[in-house]
């Protein structure tokens, strides 16, 4: 069997803000098509780490390669090969569904032809046929989040970063959302996701839990539960995060 491609390799990645070490020498690898859960309490350093991995912020030290590109030298290449979605910013509320898709397709440099075919595909998968001319702002939150995920992977990036994508979404829509994630991973897109829902941690192939800027544990959910002798990920998380010293 050929060696599986590693799409995220990071080595002692560190970010300092003055005296404060937000992210402290984190090292890990994520394989192609993997769903990687990136957990931690508020202020553990998740957002900082994620920003560095997306090429939005330069590390203080350490190294990392995203989709094969160096985060110091090739941040532009990285941006072209990753998708990003967060709970806060997703789509333009005052544009219609169709306009949003076309806009982001254009941003990612897809040709008109590609945009047309992708749009059609996306609309059918999400069942939004009757909503294409509606303003995104008028859609229920769950639909917005599904749409914004689909837009984030419109250009078939190698990796998609999801920052708490399902906050406040109802349980049914949340699962539909995860079906989209599974489908994307199945196509070979690596999914890097943060969440506060511990049951969602279980959906990941592997998860890491950050405490005070360091990655404290990294394994499959099953192994972690064994290691901590816990019934659920919730318990694992609680045992680890309780020892945290700093808030955000």
């Amino acid at each position: 069997m050929a060696e599986i491609e590693k799409v995220i390799v990071c080595e002692k990645l560190t970010k300092r803000f003055g005296d404060f070490i937000a992210t402290n020498e984190i090292s890990f690898e994520v394989k192609k098509g993997e769903i990687f859960g990136f957990l931690g309490a508020n202020g553990a350093g998740k957002t900082t780490a994620m920003r560095m991995l997306c090429g939005l912020s330069a590390p203080s030290s350490g190294s990392a390669a995203i989709a094969g590109y160096d985060i110091y030298k090739e941040p532009e290449q990285i941006k072209r090969n990753v998708g990003y979605m967060s709970q806060k910013f997703s789509l333009y509320e005052d544009l219609t569904v169709m306009e949003n898709i076309r806009f982001f397709g254009g941003i990612y440099g897809l040709t008109n032809q590609q945009i047309d075919s992708k749009t059609k595909e996306l609309i059918t998968t999400l069942g939004l046929e009757n909503e294409t001319k509606k303003l995104v702002g008028s859609l229920p939150l769950g639909w917005k989040q599904k749409l914004s995920f689909s837009v984030a992977v419109l250009h078939e990036p190698k990796i998609v970063f999801l920052d708490e994508p399902t906050g406040g979404v109802d349980p049914v829509t949340r699962r539909q959302f995860w079906n989209l994630i599974y489908a994307a991973a199945d196509r070979g897109i690596t999914v890097f996701v943060t969440t506060h829902y511990m049951d969602e941690a279980e959906y990941c192939n592997r998860i890491s839990i950050m405490v005070d800027g360091k990655i404290e544990v990294l394994d499959t959910p099953g192994n972690l539960k064994k290691q901590f002798n816990a019934e659920s990920m919730d318990e694992v998380f609680y045992q680890l995060a309780r020892s945290a010293k700093r808030g955000d």
């Binding site: 309490a41 508020n42 906050g167 406040g168 506060h196 511990m198 998380f237 995060a241």
Partner: peptide, 10 residues
């Protein structure tokens, strides 16, 4: 508790 981590929620 929205947006608060599981430990603080507990």
């Amino acid at each position: 508790t929205t947006g608060v981590d599981p430990v603080s929620r507990k």
